[in-house]
Design a protein around this nucleic acid. Structure first.
Lengths: 250, 250
DNA sequence: TAAATTGTGTAACAGGGTGTAACAGAGACT
DNA sequence: AGTCTCTGTTACACCCTGTTACACAATTTA
């Protein structure tokens, strides 16, 4: 069994080396067969030797950390096209599990790094991915640090709406593949609060349920305003005064 | 004035190019003169064109984001030796201000990137820095998402204790250069809660105040336990039951 | 020196979110 | 169809944290 794994890896390295120069980072993963994971199955665990990077080709993944008394924090959900395991030292920083049935391609760290050495054009792409991850993490810190339950849920819905429909003309329908518990652990809330908040949004006519995991966005503008990001200043001042007074650094 | 800036930049580029191969990333900054900032002064702002990377050589910096109604989130404090502005696209993700009087060296993005291209040995160092930043961000997400006020403050104190005294034999004295408001905006709390929590830690004899910005750690073990990280499982089970039941993923 | 300003500590109160529980709905299985 | 299991919803009391208010200390200004 060991030898099989070994030769498979050697083959991967060879394939990555011999392949013509790829234009896009994703192409590195093309030569590798896809693996399948059932919903709930683990892909790797925090603290594992970080031997591989992954590309999700189908389904949704959750990455999370757990502290000793069982509290869980989901640091992100990953969709088709996303790369996993980029920013790490020798051990994974978090665990990864399939939310839905998942298909992904796995590439050993070594050929991945060699490819980056060999083809400089890939490096900016790689760096951009890592930076996106960082930007996302910081937005999440803002959400967890200073947003109310309603703002958190709204932000989450808006995020999915944008992700599913390529940004601009925000998609009117969203699908939530994950459970309420997953949402709660991502948003730093409890399932009950998530549930209550969704109910509130529904009763206000901002969204409308179409089954448990699907919603239609009835009032995208209202939902955007509820996110608390306040892209425009006008948006911010004519909202009802919230629980916290403005604190400007001086 | 423009021409002066121009020639200074050109000089920088030349210096970086001509310098002998540096062994360490920090050495790239040696050729640049140091700039000084007063306490409270801004270094750059979120959304600015990200033209430079910085190395702190003295003092403490805070990096933060602000959402439109004035809520502020401090995403990190940076000390001497830290690099700022590494993980970014073309615009800064956050603002940076001096907490104390600060001296830092500024390097234009272009020569920095060229150095990374030219000397491959620097790339792993650079990547390690970015990954550290990412790891720190994720720990912060855990703190903001699932930790109580007491755990947050304890974690913060422990962080500073480790930072000041190179990790292992945890320093017995810590200095907090930032205001309570800074701490609050970093920990996702209010100044009153920070104040209350510190008072509680003092009254329990875990720490003892030595002026407003200095503390002695009287019971490092206790403080570590209060962090809620539970490095050991034993540590976790014999703590008094906390407000939240264990939630294990299944 | 006194007054104003800034930062911090303390206390009382209130509110948003949580913990617990019971209930409802949607499959899965016999 | 009926039962079981799992997930999600709703209700209510409670509690941690936020809000508000005031007092105090350190520093700056007049």
């Amino acid at each position: 069994m060991l030898s099989v794994a070994y030769s498979a890896e050697a083959k991967q390295v060879a394939a990555a080396r011999l392949a013509p120069q790829p234009e896009r980072l994703e192409e590195l993963f093309c030569s590798v067969p896809r693996e399948s994971f059932e919903a709930g199955e683990g892909v790797f665990w925090e603290g594992d030797q970080a031997d591989h990077v992954f590309k999700v080709s189908e389904g949704v993944l959750r990455v999370f950390k757990i502290i000793a008394d069982g509290r869980r924090v989901i640091t992100g959900f990953l969709y088709a096209g996303d790369l996993v395991g980029l920013s790490l030292k020798d051990r994974y920083l978090y665990s990864a599990e399939a939310v839905t049935p998942v298909r992904l391609r796995r590439l050993a760290r070594k050929p991945f790094q060699e490819a980056l050495e060999k083809w400089p054009d890939l490096r900016p792409q790689f760096f951009a991915r890592v930076c996106d991850e960082m930007a996302t993490a910081q937005d999440q810190m803002v959400l967890l640090s200073r947003k109310s339950a309603e703002e958190r849920v709204s932000t989450f819905l808006m995020l999915l709406a944008r992700r599913l429909h390529g940004c601009h003309p925000i998609g009117r329908r969203i699908h939530l593949p994950m459970s309420r518990l997953d949402m709660a652990d991502y948003l730093g809330l409890t399932i009950e609060t998530v549930s209550r908040t969704i109910t509130k949004l529904v009763s206000r006519g901002v969204i409308s349920p179409e089954g448990r995991h699907d919603f239609a966005i009835c009032k995208p503008g209202k939902l955007l305003a509820l996110c608390g990001d306040g892209d425009s200043y006008e948006e911010a001042i004519d909202r009802e005064p919230k629980m916290r007074q403005a604190i400007w650094p001086h």
